[in-house]
Structures are given as C-alpha cells and as structure tokens.
Simulated scan of single mutants.
Amino acid sequence: MSAGVNWPYPRWIAHRGAGKLAPENTLAAFRLGAEHGYRMFECDAKLSADGVPFLLHDATLERTSNGHGIAGEQSWAALSRLDAGAWHSRRYAGEPLASLEGLIRFCLANGHALNIEIKPTPGQEQRTGDVVARQAAQLWTASELPPPLLTSFAPDALRAARAAEPQLPRGLLLDTLPKGWLDLALELGCVAVVCNQALWDAATVARVHAAGLRALSYTVNDEWAAERLTAIGTDGIITDRVDRFSPVA
C-alpha cells in the first residue's frame, strides 16, 4: 500500500463466524471459525427495540430463527429467548441469538480481531451507528488487539459512528461502484473500502491504495477468486469457506 500505514488485521476474515457451517452470527459459529484457525471475524449488528446491539443479518427474524417479524421492533428480552440454531441443523438447536457484547467479550478473551458490520433496521441508521460504536469503544479495552473495524453499506450509520467514537476505524461497504464512491469513503474518514469481490480489478485497487485506503473483498468462496484478488493486490478476504481456506496459508 502506497500510504505505508500499518494494517493490523489478518488477511482472512470468517464471514458471520463460520460461514455456512454453523448458524450465522451465533457464538457457536464464532467458536467453530476459531477451531478452523480464523483469528478475525465479521458479524452483523443491529439494535433491539430497547437499544441493545445484537447480531442478525436480516431485518426480519424468520430466516435464521424461530421468531417472526421485524427484529428491531422487539425487546432484547424477547429476542434472547429465540432459537437461532435449529433452522441450520439439529446439532445447533437451542442456540440463542448473540448480543454484540457477548461476541466482543468472546473475541477479547481469545485474542480475535473483529469486523462489525453496522446493519441497521431501516430508519435506524444514525441511532444504530451511534450505539454500536459507543459499545464497541467501551468494551474493547485490550490494547494488544487492533480495534474493531466498523463497516456499513449505510453512510449515515458510519457518520454517526464517526461522531460518537472517531478513533474507531471505519470501512465503506459497496455492492456497486456509483459515481463518487471513493470520495464518499474519504469523506467518511474510512480506512478501507469493502467491495463485492467482482468489483475489484487492478486499476480500482490501485486507486484505493493511492488514496491511502485498504481494499477488502466479500464473500470469497472459490479458490480462483481468492487467487485473482491476491494477484491484484487486495488486502483482505471475507469468506464463508472456513473449511476450504486456511487463514495461515
């Protein structure tokens, strides 16, 4: 990277804990990812109705739990009683939804780095960015570990995170490259751009590096894709295939 800024994060990042091998965004998934040698994890964080950050990708509960409706409209007391494992397999039946605090404490206890994707319930972008950043900064006190990397597709969530805890690093998530995307990342004070893997080519990576940022990719599950992204100089790979890719290879 031309800026010469130290990048403290591992190259390989386990998506939602262990990809599809365990129920995503549960502590069981992060434990399984760690068993496969991963030392950095990506998760999705949103707020309960009473303002507790917890892990869930979708706005609604049906796909990954036995709950129903919009998750952000329910209290953490109600959400914490749901089964977030049986949908995946009998092995994980009874696995609860995870709080962000629980995941952070797991990472700190085991020396793992963390990428927190701020995934707001629609309409809650600023509040979610603010609360997630404040909790991450309050709990992440291990000076020997790099701070959590906060990422989001929602610029307003990143702006709120920056206002609340400007020292926490941020990354802009992109599924397309609209006009002004790099300027937006710089305006938000990001340290990284995290793109759909298909968007990266050598010239785009070079632009990001020339601006002093890092280039990360999601979700990379094929060897040919990982080899291509390595060849063009990207800096981080988020993968479901914790069983296929060794993070130390």
Rank of each mutant, 00 (worst) to 15 (best):
A163M: 11
R127E: 15
A137P: 05
P146Q: 09
R63N: 08
L82G: 07
L114S: 03
V131Y: 09
G123P: 07
G94R: 08
R159Y: 08
F41W: 05
A77P: 09
L149D: 02
F41G: 09
K46M: 15
H57R: 05
A142S: 15
S48A: 06
I118G: 05
S65F: 07
L32V: 08
T141C: 11
L55T: 02
L97C: 03
E117N: 01
A154D: 12
P148V: 06
L139M: 10
V52W: 03
T151Q: 11
R39S: 15
A136F: 10
D50N: 03
A49E: 07
H68W: 13
L139H: 00
C107R: 09
A136V: 04
A93I: 15
V132S: 00
E95V: 05
L61G: 00
A161G: 09
G69S: 07
P147K: 15
L47H: 04
S80A: 14
E35F: 11
W140V: 14
M40A: 15
P147E: 12
R39K: 12
G111S: 00
G102P: 01
L158S: 00
R39L: 10
P122M: 01
A160K: 02
L61E: 04
I116W: 06
A142R: 14
L47N: 00
G102M: 03
A59F: 06
I104T: 11
A113C: 15
L97V: 04
L97A: 03
R134C: 12
F41H: 08
P96H: 03
D156R: 12
S99F: 06
A157E: 00
E62V: 09
G33E: 10
S48G: 03
G85T: 07
A157H: 04
H112E: 12
E42R: 10
D156Y: 08
S48L: 07
I70V: 14
T141D: 08
T60P: 06
A34V: 12
A71F: 02
S89P: 00
S143A: 15
A161Y: 09
T121V: 04
S89I: 10
R134K: 11
A34T: 14
A45H: 07
W87L: 13
S80K: 08
S75K: 03
P120N: 01
L47D: 06
R134M: 09
L79G: 05
R63W: 09
A49P: 09
R105E: 15
